[in-house]
Every structure is written in C-alpha cells, then in structure tokens.
C-alpha cells in the first residue's frame, strides 16, 4: 500500500483580494481566470487583468503557494487568438499551471510552452483512466480534475491506473454535473459554459418580488418562485422547479452543495493529490470561511488519520455559506456501486 498522500488544498479566487485571502487562510494553491470568456466564470467585473494576476502570483509565490490559471472554455475558430494569447499570458506571468479542457489549446500550450504544467479541467469531462492517460501521452498533462459524477470507488479505480495526479472537488455548489457536456442553458439563453463561460449570463437573469413570491427568470423563462421562508438558489435551468404533469417540483435537480469533509481520510488513503473548492464567483468572505475550515480539517487528518473527526463548527460554517437546503456527498457516496 502506498504511503498516504497529503492532498493540496486548491481554493478559488475571482479577485486579487480573494487570492490573498485564500493564501492567508491556508490554501496551498489558488485558481484564477482572466477577464474574458476564456474561463468558465465569465462575469462582469470578476477575474484578473494582467496587473492583478501579476500581483497575485507575486503574493502567492512569496508565501510559497501556487497559482493555477483556468482557461477552460472551448475556443471558437474565430476566437482562437484570444485563447492562444491567454495561454501565452499565463506562461509569461509564471503561472504554476494552466487548467485546460480543449485538446487544440493543450497542443498549442504543450508545443509553445513545454515547461508550462498542464492540468485537465473538469470541463474536459474525462471520467476514465484511458482518457486521462491519453491526455498525458499526447500533451504531457500532469493533473486531471475529475468530474463530479464518479463514486469514491470509481475515483480510486481511476487513481490506481494512471500516473496523472488526481484532483477532486471537495466543496461547493453542485449543478447537474455533466461537466463539459452541458448545453442546457443554451436552450434558454443561447450561452453555455463551454461557449461563453457562463450557464446563466447575468444579462438574462431577472429577480422580481411578486405577491406569490420571489421569482427568478432566465431570459423571461420562469425558473423558480420562492416562498418567503425558502432559500434561494442560483438561477440556473437545472435547479428550477417545473410543472410536470400535475406536480411542480425540482424536475432536474434540487439545489444542493457538495460537502465531503467526512471523506478526507479516504482521500488520503486513495492518494488524491488535491482537493478543490468551488466558487470563483464568490466573495473574499466566502473564501476566508471555507479555506480556513478545509485547512483545519486536512491538517487534523494529517495529524491523526485514525482519529479524525469533523468538528461541528466546521459543518456549521460550511452549511452557512452553502447553496440550497441541504449538503450532500454527491456521487462519491453510492453504496450500491
């Protein structure tokens, strides 16, 4: 049995402030994006221009931490130069890795910047070791972020059959998790994460308080109506309540957050290289709260894996920032698998 791997804690940052917050609160790595549709969190005013990315890298490296740049949307033919320039910029700035999903962009990065470390994005949608090993052979990919569709046993199986580092999601908002293959929002807005870096572009989102409740609409399509006591969710199509037959319910998925604190000892045992926290769209306050909890939890497991237990305050903190009414182990927990 191989010795325990201590997973790196990979935290999100949508701003320089969030990056510094993540570093200060115990992240080993921070992932960021540039200010355009080259990444899957393309929101107004979010993300890093050259100067902010430069300062972020300086700050993280001074603390001995790493910065990854997500360039994980699919470049259209007409937009190819923008994606190329983004790879060049990441390499030029000294990013520790780029997180890519498009094979063409991987080839460009591998040829143009042979020393730039490549990570396969969750948007690459590689769920088996053959696919991951293919990316390694073709482009020298060093790490793969697994889509949130595999059970823990399946994650372990993948891990055992590849030399590529495995990064998994540990915490954050869930969607229907057909990552890299989801075009659901395109039916309503014409945009999808793969093409525009957003599934619910803010220009198409409208909230309105009505006598019947708070309505969320996406391009005028009613997504949900919340009663006064109900928690609200991100206005994505997959998390809406719809009339099906006689009933009105979450016909695709009920909003929920992934929370895998209890699986940390298993992640150590399996040999997971990194645990990723979702939420580049969130503010520094979220980054601080979540990073602090996960740092403490990983350190507690490292100190004594056999006596690791979850502190109630960790759960309380994570539940307080979570989307939806519930948290879940997601696909990791499938006892019938």
């Amino acid at each position: 049995m191989p010795p325990d791997t201590i997973p790196e804690l990979v935290c999100p940052a949508g701003s320089l402030t969030a990056l510094k917050t993540a570093v200060d609160h115990g992240a080993d790595c921070v992932y960021i994006g540039f200010r355009d549709n080259t990444n899957a969190r393309n929101f107004a005013g979010l993300n890093f221009d050259r100067a902010a990315a430069h300062e972020g890298l300086r700050y993280a490296h001074a603390a001995g931490k790493q910065v990854f740049v997500a360039l994980n949307t699919n470049p259209p033919d007409a937009g190819w130069p923008r994606w190329q320039e983004a790879v060049d910029l990441a390499a030029d700035l000294g990013a520790d890795a780029v997180i890519l999903s498009d094979p063409g962009l991987m080839q460009y990065a591998a040829q143009r910047h042979p020393h730039l470390r490549l990570h396969l994005s969750v948007q690459g949608s590689a769920t088996n070791y053959e696919a991951i090993n293919f990316y390694r052979q073709q482009f020298g990919v060093r790490r793969a972020v697994l889509p949130r569709v595999l059970s823990l046993a399946q994650v372990e199986h993948v891990r055992q059959h590849t030399e590529v580092d495995i990064e998994i999601f540990g915490f954050g908002s869930l969607c229907v998790m057909v990552e890299g293959r989801c075009a659901l929002s395109s039916y309503v807005t014409g945009d999808s994460p793969n093409t525009s870096g957003v599934c619910s572009p803010a220009r198409a989102v409208h909230w309105k308080q009505t006598p019947a409740g708070l309505e969320s609409r996406l391009n005028e399509v009613l997504i949900d109506r919340y009663a006064a006591h109900e928690n609200a969710s991100y206005p994505t199509l997959c998390k809406g309540r719809f009339n099906v037959g006689e009933a009105s319910y979450y016909a695709i998925e009920e909003p929920a957050s992934l929370n895998t604190l209890e699986l940390i000892p298993e992640f150590f045992r399996i040999g997971i290289s990194a645990i990723k926290i979702e939420g580049r769209q969130r503010s520094p306050a979220y980054v601080a709260q979540v990073t602090r909890v996960w740092r403490q939890a990983i350190d507690a497991c490292r100190a004594n894996r056999n006596h690791y237990s979850i502190k109630p305050v960790w759960m309380d903190t994570l539940n307080s920032v979570a989307e939806g009414q519930q948290h879940t182990l997601g696909a990791y927990h499938r006892p019938w698998k």
Partner: peptide, 17 residues
C-alpha cells in the same frame, strides 16, 4: 439589472483589506 449588481459586487471585492 442583475449584471449591474454583479459588477458592483465585484467592484467592491477589488478593495484591498
């Protein structure tokens, strides 16, 4: 205008602590 709200939130997030 939701997009304006996101912009404003992200503007405030750029303020250094």
């Amino acid at each position: 205008d939701t997009e304006l709200g996101l912009w404003f939130k992200n503007l405030l997030d750029t303020i250094d602590p």
